[in-house]
Design a protein around this nucleic acid. Sequence first.
DNA 1: TCAACACTTTAGAATCATTCTAAACTGATA
DNA 2: TATCAGTTTAGAATGATTCTAAAGTGTTGA
Lengths: 130, 130
Amino acid sequence: MNDIKQFLRSNSLRPTKQRIVIAGYLFDGTNKHVTAESLSTELAKRKHIISLATIYNTLHDFYENGLLKKLILSSDRVYFDTNTNDHHHFYSEKDQFLIDINKNIKVNGLPKTPKNKKINKIEVIVHLDK
Amino acid sequence: MNDIKQFLRSNSLRPTKQRIVIAGYLFDGTNKHVTAESLSTELAKRKHIISLATIYNTLHDFYENGLLKKLILSSDRVYFDTNTNDHHHFYSEKDQFLIDINKNIKVNGLPKTPKNKKINKIEVIVHLDK
DNA sequence: TCAACACTTTAGAATCATTCTAAACTGATA
DNA sequence: TATCAGTTTAGAATGATTCTAAAGTGTTGA
Ligand SMILES: [Mn+2]
Ligand SMILES: [Mn+2]
Ligand SMILES: [Zn+2]
Ligand SMILES: [Zn+2]
């Protein structure tokens, strides 16, 4: 709890009640993929009612500060990922299945990068079926 | 034009005026990435005013029939891709830059597929910066 | 040829994730 | 403890997309 406060402060985020609860849940040591909605539901189960506006604000604040990654996998919800290492994903839209691939993946055979651009990140999504 | 009609019929799509115009634009031989909005704008330039509802309907009809691929790259628009071969993308959200990678790409080092699932498609997105 | 009907188009309303607004609240600071 | 910038929140707004239901059209069998 004081760890969390320090953690927030060290990321230039004022440790408010809401941020402490959200950070406490998100950064408990287990990697998580959450949406605003799923996070809200999860916190509600724990009797922590935080407005959706604050949940969105906080996810963005954490994202802006590099504490979360953002994943665009579906057109109707944004996932935030507590695993901020470089990694990839197995994903199934239909099954709402999403897990990390932490093994080192090599992507071979890329053509040369378009002029005046540089590679920021290579993202591999392994789409799964049943 | 009769080609287009045949093409639509052979995909069990009734060749309506609107579908003929849209297919004529989309399948002119050059690969394209369109959104409902960009397609609407493009057709309007050519004096073909088609309602957005029909544009959405048609993109989905074409997609359902395998004539288009769907790309989820941004949280606020869906891209449809006329290149239906297996391929990957260079993408920059900021620059609205999106081009195909048609070279064969190899992804090495994948862990084993999760139990009871099978790989449907491997998607590589190379995110670019300026 | 054409009536009949299933399929399609469309305007406008609805949906829904997300963002915005502006007022009340609170953590930090001296 | 007063002050104030930063934060939270209810509720409105936004915007891409989907839905509704009424009018229009391509197909086809007689
Ligand atoms: Mn949306
Ligand atoms: Mn949207
Ligand atoms: Zn992840
Ligand atoms: Zn493409």
